[in-house]
């Protein structure tokens, strides 16, 4: 596992690249560890308060620990009319957690998202940002069981 200093250092030549660094950190850890926020602040020459403000502004960034797979349910209007509520309920039941929570084994975190731009095949969920199309409550166990 790469350490956070190296990950941040790999982005340091991008002017204003703190968000890129956060993405890179999340690719490794699925969230942005506290020390990494402080390090990013140092590397990109901003205050820690600002680095923290940036990390908490964007909904895809998290400063809280998350599971290995981040499952997101799109709840924007097109998915909403296509039955997102039912799919979400099915995911909560299958995983035994509510939105915003992580399964006890640390495998799944369930989140909501606004439109992911795959509205040709609603409702849509994403698993670690990869979209899964035309989901339905019935298909959820099969879809999620594929992630180990």
């Amino acid at each position: 596992m790469a350490n956070y200093q190296d990950i941040i250092a790999s982005c340091k030549d991008k002017k204003g690249g703190i968000i890129e660094a956060y993405h890179a950190l999340q690719r490794e850890f699925n969230y942005i560890p506290r020390e990494a926020v402080a390090e990013a602040a140092r590397v990109f020459g901003v205050s820690e308060a600002q680095a923290y403000g940036v990390a908490t502004f964007y909904s895809y960034l998290s400063v809280e620990k998350r599971g290995k797979y981040i499952v997101r349910m799109c709840e924007s209007a097109p998915c909403h009319v296509a039955g997102a509520d039912k799919v979400l309920k099915a995911m909560e039941d299958y995983l035994g957690i509510k939105v915003g929570e992580t399964t006890a084994d640390g495998k799944f975190t369930l989140e909501l998202t606004e439109c992911v731009g795959q509205c040709q095949a609603t409702p849509v969920i994403t698993v670690n940002s990869q979209p899964v199309f035309n989901v339905s409550s019935e298909k959820i166990p099969e879809i999620l069981s594929a992630y180990k």
């Binding site: 991008k14 690249g17 968000i19 993405h23 964007y58 909904s59 960034l61």
Partner: peptide, 10 residues
């Protein structure tokens, strides 16, 4: 051209 990625903010 450099590509920068947003992070979930409409």
């Amino acid at each position: 051209i450099e590509v920068r990625m947003g992070a979930g903010a409409y």
